[in-house]
Amino acid sequence: MHFNISMIFPLILCLMLPSAFAQPTTGPAAVTGKSIVFIATNMRIGGIKDVQESFAEAAEKLKWQVQVIDCAGKKNNAVKAMESAVHAKTDGIVLGGFDGADHRDLVKKAQKMGIKIVGWHAAAQPGPNQYMFVNITTEPESVAQSAAEQIAHYGAKEGGVILLTDRDYSMATAKTLALKRAVEKMRKFKVLTVVDLPLSQSDQKIMNMVKSWNQRFGSSWTHTVGINDLYFDHMARALRAVDREDIVGIGAGDGSSDAILRVTEQESPQLVTVAEPLRTQGWQLADELNRAFAGQNPSGYQTELIVVSKRNLNGLNPDNVEANIPYRQAYLKIWFPKGSVK
């Protein structure tokens, strides 16, 4: 079985419209006055930064106090942050971009103390699990499939793909395995190599790695697909240095504002970002945490991915690809049914 371009419906820009917006319409009213610690694995990752900022906006409406801790990509910092949050007996913890399972002892201790925990990209799959009330992310399989489909739309019509991943994250591993399977089904493309490149080191290593890949694979290398857009922050300069601006870059994760800008400006080898509605997810984190405080079940809501490509932007505003998603209005209506929010 292989992909046929005629079988692939055009993923030029897939935005959720209000008519298709399946966000919850019912839930508990605002549980105010809570203290929250948002632990971010690395605020240099655009997706985490955008989600955190959106969560803070929602938390302000809920009259929560939020402390943000940036772990700068270091696991020992995450341990310290978790210990600090547990010691402070905070009401809630957001695991921002790192696996809850990696800190299971601290997570279990927090849960026993009644601390509510939600995660963003904190497990391989969306939904509730033993380590948190709910994990918010799009399905890794869907993201991988959409990213793989874009290979056929851009650049060389046959060739080789380098997959970039960070094995410190279970979600990245799940997405990479799905990407590998998807590319291997393509008749005219093959996986050249899977590279474990920590996101926290990508800016330091990408130049030498691009040189190495070009020497090793030459013209066989036609596409690069990364599990996160951060890999492409310095990719353009590295490709220019080896005169390989023909290499197409596809981001299979997050859809940071920087990545969307790269795609929309059309001045970068990154031609696609398979994005998530990050600002919607920030408010969703707040809503799920509010449900936990109210003693209710998770909403069951799962966001859909947004594919932003260079082919036809249709007047897209790169500053707000979620303009058609009424997440603020929807959540405020749930939290403040009498319209008393300011």
Rank of each mutant, 00 (worst) to 15 (best):
I5S: 04
P10H: 06
I12L: 15
I12H: 10
L15S: 08
L15P: 00
L17F: 05
L17T: 05
S19N: 11
S35L: 01
R44W: 02
I45P: 00
E53N: 15
E53W: 02
E53H: 03
S54R: 09
A59E: 03
Q65V: 11
V66F: 05
C71W: 00
C71Y: 00
N76R: 00
E83I: 02
D91W: 05
G92A: 07
I93L: 08
G96N: 13
F98T: 01
A110R: 03
A110E: 05
W120G: 01
W120D: 04
Q125F: 13
N129F: 01
V134D: 08
T137F: 03
I151Q: 02
Y154G: 02
E158K: 07
E158R: 04
G159R: 08
G160H: 12
G160Y: 11
G160C: 13
S170W: 13
S170V: 14
T173W: 02
A174M: 06
T176R: 07
A178I: 09
A178P: 09
E184G: 02
R187H: 08
K190Y: 00
T193F: 01
L197W: 06
P198K: 02
L199G: 09
K205A: 15
N208E: 13
V210G: 06
R216L: 08
F217H: 10
S220E: 15
G226F: 12
I227E: 02
L230E: 09
H234E: 06
M235D: 07
A236R: 15
A238H: 09
A241G: 06
A241K: 14
G251E: 10
G255V: 03
G255M: 06
S257G: 01
S257L: 05
D258W: 09
I260K: 12
R262D: 09
Q266T: 10
Q266H: 11
E267C: 05
Q270M: 15
Q281G: 10
D287M: 12
A292W: 08
P298V: 04
Y301G: 11
Q302K: 14
R311G: 08
R311Y: 09
R311K: 14
N312E: 09
N314P: 00
N314D: 10
V321S: 03
N324R: 12
I325G: 02
P326Y: 04
Y331W: 13
K342N: 10
